[in-house]
Amino acid sequence: MIASQSKLSKLFIKCKSENRAALIGYLPAGFPNQSDSIKIIKAMIEGGVDAVEIGFPYSDPVMDGPVIQEAAEVARKNGITMAKTLDIVKEISATGVPTLLMTYWNPIERYGPEKFAHDFSVEGMEGVITPDLPIEEAGVWLATAKENSIHSIFVIAPSTGDGRLKDVTSNCSGFIYAASSMGVTGTQTSVANTASALVERVRKISGTPVAVGLGVSNRVQASEVAKFADGVIVGSAFVKAVLQNPSDPATAVRKVAEELSLGVRER
């Protein structure tokens, strides 16, 4: 696979032709447990999510707010490991939906970046989002990802200066992850105008698709973001749906995805 022919890249082309944004849904691996986690992610896809971002639950998630922290704790208590995450990636990518992994850096370093890139790409993982790996520390990872045809996706923030924005975005492949605000993951009442300003700055220097995350949780917000971004990333709203509906989390997640998928089509 060449990165430009990945399902992920094709997805953004398709969405553009349909004049809509792509909906990217996040859920932690193994949450609330291994088998339910797969069912729930599949329900998220049935509900209309275009690409899946599977999070690896980590002990020290400094970019995550209380909702995703809680989910990560539950998944860890129920025994999630890198090996089990690999099984989930395999099951999800088999559905044909672009499958990405979101992980803090240390679990990759511990697994071994080369072995990680190899093992996970073989099972269909197309890209990795690394929220605590600044570009200055990413040399080894960029080379490894490239060798294995994996998209390396970095986060940009409203505080990222212009010079730096160029460095970061030019190393992003697949899409650029634009953080909508200064803060951690979680649902917010309004997605600040800072997001559209940031995306506008990126457009001037990069042709790579831009997806906006942090704080998007409902149809109205998804539609707002879809007006200026190529992708809308939603995480905490799905996690919340699972936490609040322990008897039937899959149905709750499907409903959230259905709502959001309407939103990304309302430009």
């Binding site: 970019m63 929220p131 970061v168």
Partner: peptide, 8 residues
């Protein structure tokens, strides 16, 4: 430095 971009 292994931190979120927002802190750089």
């Amino acid at each position: 430095r292994f931190v979120p971009e927002a802190l750089i």
